[in-house]
Design a protein around this nucleic acid. Structure first.
Lengths: 182, 182
DNA sequence: GATCCTATTTATAATCA
DNA sequence: TTGATTATAAATAGGAT
């Protein structure tokens, strides 16, 4: 798309590379914006310059897109469903594991949200607590408490030997029995 | 860029919108890929279809870009450092909290990595465990075990009343004393 | 839903300001 | 460096499969 056709490979000349970066970054974000508007879809773009500066675009927001990605929506719930006999026996185990994953992921999302909130105030910790509105502090503390409560209950469940451990153990047994084959 | 010029506004016709989404999604990701190659820069793109399915591109990986974004590079480590007296007393507390945050965040990152790994095999859980190479299973199990061990020790530390709780309590006290303001 | 086909619109490489 | 200019390469709207 220029006077001359170019190969898609790293531009060696640093200054030419910088110019290209700047132009294409703008183009990429414009495209992302158009896609989100035309199709009403959720889109996130993040670009880091060589200097480490971040540029981003997000609809409805970059945070929203990141969180949704981390919560792992993906996988269509059906398609090649010709499950073998052995496989079907494993489904429940794995689903239990997936459930675990999801729970921990949610915990993480919660934590991340708090962290973001904290980071959104540069040097917030250098200010006396009294500078914050009580509601703001309440919010932060509640998030923190909730997080640790979740960690506690999660750990307690594990100590009492739940399906999690069972699943893991079963998989480990299976693994041992199969160890010999490649 | 087509037979006719179009306005950048939401496409009302659902099927036309779907077609546009599919085409532009591909274009956007191609552009992102080119940018990362041409300029050797770190780029991440995530798009959700209306059906909730996620499409992404990342260099060196989408996880890398997301993690880098969440770690929030920005803020220079010093600037307005005229800390008040009360504030300086709070610094240690808050720093302890930040440490906590960091630990939990690392835990999350670990979890996320495992989850991604699992999701990278479509319907992996529908296959008999024996279809996987022992090393692969070992890897997954180790990740899982590590995660829960971290959760356990974290919870144990909390139950024994550590600086975490202390910090929280101190902040809560401070909060109570300030409740009347604002 | 993806893919193939153009006619057009856009993005942008090279150049100059 | 940061912006225009402009000739060309690319992306893509509309339509058909």
């Amino acid at each position: 798309m220029g006077r001359a056709k170019i190969e898609i490979k790293k531009i060696e000349n640093p200054s030419a590379r910088q110019v290209c970066f700047s132009k294409r970054r703008g183009g990429l974000i414009k495209k992302a914006s158009e896609l989100s508007i035309l199709c009403g879809s959720e889109v996130g773009v993040i670009v880091f310059s060589q200097a480490g500066k971040a540029f981003s675009f997000g609809h409805p927001s970059i945070d929203y897109v990141i969180d949704k990605t981390l919560s792992g929506e993906s996988s269509d719930s059906d398609s090649g469903s010709a499950v073998t006999d052995v496989a079907s026996q494993k489904v429940q185990q794995v689903q239990a594991l997936q459930q675990q994953q999801k729970q921990v992921t949610q915990l993480l999302a919660s934590e991340r949200e708090l962290q973001r909130r904290l980071l959104s105030y540069p040097f917030w910790w250098q200010k006396p607590v009294t500078n914050y509105r009580p509601q703001e502090l309440h919010y932060l503390l509640q998030r923190l408490d909730g997080l640790y409560e979740m960690l506690l209950s999660r750990a307690a469940a594990l100590q009492h030997g739940t399906t999690v451990n069972t699943s893991v153990e079963m998989m480990q047994n299976r693994l041992t029995n199969t160890e010999s084959g490649e």
